[in-house]
């Protein structure tokens, strides 16, 4: 394996590891179709890999979300029998609007939650997403109420750090 090939593979893996999760979640919401979402994520990361210049000095997550969204919308247009290709340049210059900013932010939060240790994520799911009380969570998970409380506490502290790492100060 050549060094350049390895470097390319490392770049691709890094792009995938760093961004594929939130990007996939975002695109899946837009398309509602896992197959199409996979295709769009693939194409988006491919463009990032091929155009490191376009990414220099830009917030990469916003760039990726912009490219992905436009790919999805291009497909919508194409499906309405108006084939239209958007070049890489056009894709990259579109500024991030409020909606996109919010999307980038929510998926960063999802990513931060995903980065938590499993037992922390688990109590968050119960206490936050399912709105359960400590006692209900304790019953559901079969762990003492004290453990639910301490895990919730440490989950929030860890989440605060994870959010700050992603530039989201609560």
């Amino acid at each position: 394996m050549s060094p350049a090939g390895t470097a390319d593979e490392q770049l691709i893996k890094a792009l995938f590891d760093d961004h594929a999760g939130p990007l996939y979640g975002y695109v899946l919401r837009l398309t509602g179709d896992t197959g199409r979402a996979e295709d769009v994520v693939q194409e988006t990361l491919l463009r990032a890999w091929r155009h490191p210049d376009a990414l220099a000095g830009k917030p990469i997550r916003a760039w990726l979300f912009t490219v992905a969204r436009n790919l999805v919308f291009d497909q919508h247009r194409a499906r309405r029998s108006r084939p239209q290709e958007t070049g890489d340049e056009a894709l990259a210059v579109m500024p991030a609007d409020d909606e996109l900013e919010r999307a980038v932010e929510s998926w960063a939060v999802a990513e931060a939650i995903a980065a938590l240790r499993p037992e922390h994520r688990e109590v968050l799911v119960h206490v936050y997403y399912q709105g359960r009380s400590v006692r209900e969570t304790s019953d559901a998970l079969g762990i003492p109420a004290g453990t639910v409380k301490s895990r919730t506490y440490y989950a929030l502290r860890a989440l605060k750090l994870a959010l700050e790492e992603r530039g989201l100060a609560p």
């Binding site: 995938f16 996939y24 979640g25 919401r29 979402a37 994520v41 693939q42 998926w107 999802a110 995903a114």
Partner: peptide, 12 residues
Amino acid sequence: DVAQVVSPPVVV
């Protein structure tokens, strides 16, 4: 959503 973020499709 969080579950998907944890495990993006490896096929990609």
